[in-house]
Write a protein that binds this DNA or RNA. Structure first.
Lengths: 348, 348
DNA sequence: TTGTACGCGTTATCAT
DNA sequence: ATGATAACGCGTACAA
C-alpha cells in the first residue's frame, strides 16, 4: 500500500506538490488522480482512498494556473463594479466573494468608473485572464454589446432586464421602492414632497422618479416641476439640490432623495439652514447604506438588498456555468422607517 | 427552446490568437516573438517590425495563464484586506488598483475578516493562484508568520513596522495623529476630553490612546480613567460608549473617538440625549472617511491618507518585484478642522 | 541574433 | 475502470 519512497516530511505550505507526485505516491496514474479530483468518472473505492490519503499526506493543492491552461477553466470570475470603494456596491462585492469562495472560485474585481469604454477594457482584461464568467454590477455598457459578450462568456448583469443567450439579469424594483417611500410620506400627511433625482443616464434613477410621480398621482396630486431637483447620486449634489430648493422659496415639508448619499447631503443643507429633521422637514432616502443607521437622525429609507444581490448574482452565475438556467429573483423593496420622518404638523 | 448545453467544454475567447500564430504570420520563431514581448533580448529591427505588425493585425493578446505556467510570473498580486466593503480600506483598494493597473498587474482582493487563520487561508489561496506578490492591509497575522511568507513571496504590509527580507512595511503615525487631535481640543480650551478607544488588539488603537494621553500630559493634565471608554472601531460601539459616559455622570466637554465610525456613533448618542455638537460637546474623529464631510455636523478629524496608502503599497510592491528597495513613506498626519469642534464656553 | 526543444501541472482523448 | 499520451500557450536554457 504504502510506497517505499518516504519523503521525510513535506512542508505542506509551499504548494510544490504536484498531481503527478500524488499519483506516484498512491500508485495510480495522474489521469486517475485528476478524475478523482474532478469527479469526472467512477473510480474504485480502493484507489480513491489511496489517492485521498496521498493528497492529505502530501498536502497537495491543485494548481489553478495549470488547470486553466489544460482545461480551459480558471475557477475565476470577473466582476465589474463601478468603484471598488462604492458604499453601495461594496456590500454586493462581499456577497459575491462569499458565495464564489465557497464554490472554490475567486473573483477578479475591476472598476469601470461609470465609463462604457473603461468597461470594455475591463472585459478585455478579464477575458485575457480567462475568467470563466462575468458579473456586471449595473454598468454603462449597452445591451447589445453586453449580449455579444455573453455569447462567449456566461454573464450576470444587475440593474436591468435583459434576456439573451448566456446571460442572466437581476433587477431590483426601483419603481416600487420609490413608490413605497413616497407613499410613506403621503400617509404621514405630507403633500409638498420634494424629490432629488439621480442622473437620468442611470435607469434606476429614471425608475425612482417614475415611482415618485406614480405615488403622487395615485394620491390625486400633480407632480410639481419646482419640487423635482436634479442630483447625481453623490452627497454634494443632494446638498446643492436642497440649497436650490430653499432659495426658490417653493414650500415643502418633506424630501425624498433617490439615494442615501444624496439624502445625507440634503440633511446637511437643511441643518446648515437651521431646519431640523424630522421636526421641520421629513427626509427619506434610498438604498439603506450602512451609514443610514447612524446618521443624524437615523434615516428612513428603502432597503436595497445589496448583500443579497451580490450573493444571488454569484449563485446565478455558478448555475449558468453549470449549464443550468438560474431562476432567482431579488427580494421585494422594503421601507425601513427610522427617525427622519414624522407626521406632518400644521404649517409644514 | 433550450438545448442542454454541455458544460465546461468551450474555451471562452472569441479570437484565440496564439503566440505561435504570430510567429508563423511574421516568419520568425515563437521564441523570438516571446523575446520581443518581454524585451528579453535584442532583436533586429526588421523582425521586430514584422512581429509588431503581425501582433497588431492578428490582434494577439498574450495569455497570462500560459505565461504563469511557463514563466512563473502571473502579473497578478494578492491583496488581503479585512472586508472588501470596509469604508476605510476601500479607498486604499482603489489606490492599489489604480497603480497596479497602470503597470499591467491585476489585484486579487481577498478578505481576511480580522482572523489570523482566515488570513493564512487567503495566503494559501493566493499562493496557489501564483500571485507575484502580496499586499497585506494591517491584518492579524503575526510578524514571524509574515516574515516567513515574505521569504518566498515579496510582501508589503501596512499598519506596522517590520523589517525582513522580501518585506516592506508602511506605517501611519497614529500616535502623532491622536496627539494632534487632542491638542486641537486642548487649544480650544477643553479640559475634560473623553476618549473612545479602539480594540487594543489593533496596534493603531493602542497608538492612538498613547497619543491622547501624551497630549494631555504635555498640557499638564492627568488622563482620567473615567473619561476613557472602550470601543471596537464600529459605530455602535461609539454610541454605547457615550451612553455609558453620560450615565456615569462624569463631566466632559469634548470627545475624541479613535476612528470616524465611532465618532458617528458618538454623535448619534449625543443627539439622542439632546446634546448638540459642537455647541454642547466638541467631537473629533480619526480617518477622515468620505462620510465625514457630510455628517451632521461635518466632522473634525485626523486625515489618514487611505488612497495614498494604497498607491504607495502598490508602488512599493512593484519596486520589490523589480528587485529594488522601496523607500517611500506615508504622509504625516494632518488635522482637518470642520464643524464639530469649537472653543469651549464657560460651564462646559 | 535566432531557432530548437523541453518544461510548467493539469485535463481530455483515445486506447485498453 | 484505468493508463498512456497529447495538448494547453508560453518562457527559456541550450545550441547554432
Amino acid at each position: 500500500m504504502r510506497s517505499k519512497s518516504s519523503p521525510a516530511r513535506h512542508a505542506a505550505s509551499g504548494g510544490k506538490v504536484t498531481l503527478e507526485m500524488v499519483a506516484q505516491h498512491s500508485g495510480v496514474s495522474p489521469a486517475t488522480v485528476s478524475r478523482i479530483l474532478n469527479g469526472t468518472a467512477v473510480v474504485s473505492d480502493e484507489k480513491r482512498e489511496a489517492v485521498d490519503r496521498a493528497i492529505a499526506e502530501l498536502g497537495f493543492v491543485p494548481n489553478p494556473i495549470a488547470r486553466g491552461l489544460a482545461g480551459g477553466r480558471t475557477l475565476s470570475v470577473g466582476v465589474i463594479t463601478q468603484a471598488i470603494d462604492s458604499p453601495f456596491y461594496g456590500v454586493a462585492l462581499r456577497g459575491i466573494e462569499e458565495v464564489l469562495d465557497k464554490a472554490g472560485y475567486i473573483p477578479l474585481f475591476v472598476s469601470g468608473h461609470w465609463d462604457a469604454d473603461e468597461e470594455k477594457r475591463c472585459i478585455e482584461v478579464l477575458r485575457s485572464r480567462r475568467v470563466d464568467g462575468l458579473i456586471v454590477l449595473t454598468g454603462r455598457l449597452g445591451d447589445a454589446e453586453l449580449g455579444k459578450v455573453a455569447k462567449t462568456l456566461p454573464t450576470v448583469i444587475t440593474g436591468r432586464v435583459l434576456k439573451a443567450p448566456g446571460l442572466y439579469s437581476l433587477q431590483f424594483d426601483d419603481f416600487e421602492g420609490a413608490r413605497l417611500a413616497t407613499e410613506h410620506l403621503l400617509q404621514l400627511g405630507h403633500r409638498r414632497i420634494a424629490f432629488i433625482a439621480g442622473d437620468p443616464v442611470h435607469p434606476d434613477a429614471v425608475e425612482r422618479l417614475r415611482g415618485y410621480k406614480a405615488a403622487l398621482q395615485a394620491a390625486g396630486l400633480k407632480p410639481r416641476a419646482a419640487l423635482q431637483l436634479q442630483g447625481s447620486f453623490i452627497e454634494e449634489s443632494g446638498r446643492e439640490a436642497v440649497q436650490r430648493l430653499l432659495a426658490s422659496g417653493e414650500p415643502f415639508s418633506a424630501i425624498f432623495a433617490a439615494n442615501d448619499q444624496m439624502a445625507f447631503g440634503a440633511a446637511l443643507a437643511l441643518y446648515e439652514h437651521g431646519l431640523r429633521v424630522p421636526e421641520d422637514v421629513s427626509l427619506v432616502g434610498f438604498d439603506d447604506l450602512a451609514g443610514a443607521t447612524h446618521s443624524i437622525p437615523p434615516l428612513t429609507t428603502v432597503q436595497q438588498p445589496g448583500l443579497e444581490m451580490g450573493r444571488l448574482a454569484a449563485s446565478s452565475l455558478l448555475q449558468l456555468l453549470a449549464g443550468e438556467r438560474p431562476k432567482v429573483t431579488l427580494p421585494k423593496p422594503q421601507l425601513v422607517v427610522r427617525a427622519s420622518t414624522r407626521r406632518m404638523v400644521a404649517g409644514g
